[in-house]
Computed example of a mutant assay.
Amino acid sequence: MYTKRSPLKGSLLLLLLMLNLLLSRSVESLPICPSGAVNCQVSLSDLFDRAVMLSHYIHSLSSEMFNEFDERYAQGRGFITKAINSCHTSSLSTPEDKEQAQQIHVHPGERENEVYSAWSGLPSLQMADEDARLFAFYNLLHCLRRDSHKIDNYLKLLKCRLIHDSNC
């Protein structure tokens, strides 16, 4: 019995394979401290440098994935108008721009009441309707790009405030 394979399933498999290759491409997990170091001290500045580098790389990869998916599957479907403000993290209170972010007072070690927003998009990724499934992937990648950009910017701002005393 021959069953026709959906081109979307093969494409999604290819997309996931590409994601795996992108994430493993030129990424080396180097130890911060030399092997065998007993009392290794790493400066806060070095930790921020590493965190900023990694967050920038993750944002770059998420942008690349979103752009490729957009070009290959979303053209002419009007997904962007549906995706605006539909991220599950949109309800989290974050500054709108750099000026608002700079007004936040940083208190290292202090934690406010943490609010986690659960992602409920998995059923949409498994729907039989191809347009609904494509939109679910589009929205997931859109939100990943959006959130990784915020994290990248906030880490850079936090580094500037804590390491360089806001003199950047």
Rank of each mutant, 00 (worst) to 15 (best):
L61P: 00
L61N: 15
S62T: 15
M65D: 11
N67Y: 06
E68G: 13
D70M: 00
E71Q: 11
E71Y: 03
E71M: 13
R72L: 14
A74C: 13
R77K: 15
G78Q: 12
G78P: 04
F79M: 02
I80E: 13
K82G: 02
I84Y: 10
I84T: 05
I84Q: 10
N85F: 15
S86H: 11
C87Y: 03
H88G: 15
T89W: 00
L92M: 02
S93N: 07
S93L: 08
T94W: 00
T94E: 01
P95R: 06
E96A: 10
E96W: 00
E99W: 01
E99Q: 13
Q100G: 03
Q103F: 09
I104Y: 08
I104N: 05
V106M: 03
G109C: 10
E110R: 10
R111G: 06
E114M: 08
V115Q: 14
V115E: 14
S117A: 12
A118G: 09
A118C: 06
W119V: 14
S120C: 09
S120N: 11
S120M: 06
G121S: 15
P123V: 08
S124D: 15
S124K: 12
L125Y: 05
L125N: 02
Q126I: 14
M127Q: 11
E130A: 09
E130V: 12
E130K: 07
L134R: 15
L134K: 15
L134Q: 10
F137T: 03
F137L: 11
F137M: 05
Y138A: 08
Y138I: 10
Y138R: 14
L141Y: 11
H142P: 02
C143D: 09
S148F: 13
H149P: 00
N153P: 01
N153L: 13
Y154G: 09
L155T: 02
L157D: 06
L157T: 04
L157A: 05
L158C: 04
K159E: 10
K159F: 01
R161S: 10
I163Q: 08
D165N: 11
S166C: 15
